[in-house]
Nucleic acid binder design. Structure first.
Lengths: 226, 226
DNA sequence: TTATAATCTAACTAACCAGTTAATTAATTT
DNA sequence: AAATTAATTAACTGGTTAGTTAGATTATAA
């Protein structure tokens, strides 16, 4: 466990950006593994190969570090989703594009949903929360964007009539939940739910579920109807 | 904040069952508010109006107390769901009965989903988990019961063809997620998502979503079968 | 080349918190 | 009424952990 024999003493002013990034990365892992209360600043510093005081040099305190982690996570997610939504295609495609992008982002960052969930859970009772900032800064934009697509699809007759807010909530639920409950599934089924092919299966199931729940049956699925 | 002037010194051997129950109840609240790492045994004792040592008298340690809380929560949930599933009605009704019962139970116990979510999150990495016991003792029974109903409905042509595991996961997601994300919603919409009428709206949206995603369009929407 | 300021660390502190101990109270048995 | 045992508590202990301090190191500016 002892470090490499030749110690790269880059001295002070070594790689400030690298140090900061290393701390943030380690914090993402530590917070997602243990939640905020369970996370240990010492562990973060160790994982980032940095003195603990440096953590406090770059971030005011544990809470602020946690806030930075949240910003990191959500800015990545929202920019990814925004891009998927920006394409100008028919409502059906856009909804599926959104859902697919959201799913893929989470699948590609398996640590993130735990952090999101952990933060969601803090708001119930207790002191300071970052949720207000996060909600205003990230959620609202995406939410109204998706809601707009839903309205378009409904008025075009492509979608069933649904309550936008509840429908979006349900989509997020389906997209997200699988990754949080993966441990239980592993226990119950014996297979690894995070493996490539299992994730692919889940993706298909999610899109199928959403499409079935939202899309108005086509008049002409390929030939005729009724 | 000082206690009542007349102290009901019931002395030792007061109400053992009551003490134990008070501890468990306080623990449900504390664990659901703060997660296991954030929960404070002192706070539980205080809330239960009991000396901290008594907590350790009745429960081996914090971990065991947490386990007892989980058992309490899940036994209630599963027995409630089992009852809803036991009725012998057509698959469509049974699925909606299950979803409705699950939803209602959670709506009636708003502290519980947080505990469930917290426990789900512990399995990712870390030491001992109660999840294995919980899964075997509670989840499996319900899971296979619901899966059986799905298979019946599919082979009867009432349901679309779906993967049971993924579909159940999605249903649980939709039923559950709303309550966890309530704080965000409160922030974003300004209304209280846990209020009676908001919960009722959500319930309708959930059942509508599930029905639309699962039920095969009826040949004869109101009359007889083919 | 010296001063300045940014980057980084070893070692410390003060608070916190899970769990223990040893004693106390009262219901029940003998 | 003495002995026993279940229920309960005040006060303590020891390990952990967030956060601090005072100083070291070096790139860059003056």
């Amino acid at each position: 466990m002892q470090a490499a024999p030749i110690k790269f003493r880059l001295g002070s002013r070594g790689r400030p950006e690298e140090s900061r990034a290393a701390i943030l990365l380690a914090a993402v892992r530590e917070f997602s593994d243990n939640g905020i209360a369970g996370a240990r600043v010492d562990a973060i510093a160790r994982a980032a190969k940095v003195n603990k005081a440096l953590v406090y040099y770059y971030f005011k305190d544990k809470e602020a570090l946690y806030g930075a982690v949240l910003d990191h996570v959500f800015s990545g997610l929202t920019s990814c989703i925004s891009e998927a939504l920006s394409k100008n295609s028919p409502p059906r495609d856009r909804i599926l594009a959104y859902a697919g992008a959201h799913f893929d982002y989470i699948a590609g960052h398996p640590l993130y949903p735990r952090i999101v969930q952990a933060e969601l859970m803090r708001a119930g009772r207790g002191g300071a929360t970052h949720l207000e900032r996060i909600g205003k800064q990230y959620f609202r934009r995406i939410f109204s964007h998706v809601a707009e697509v839903l309205r378009q699809g409904m008025s075009a007759g492509d979608f069933r009539m649904v309550d936008e807010m509840h429908f979006i909530t349900s989509m997020v639920a389906i997209i997200t939940f699988y990754f949080n409950s993966a441990p239980v599934m592993r226990l119950m089924t014996g297979v690894d739910p995070i493996s490539k092919d299992q994730v692919a299966k889940r993706r298909a199931a999610v899109l199928d579920f959403i499409a079935a729940a939202l899309f108005e049956p086509r008049r002409n699925p390929k030939g005729v109807r009724s």
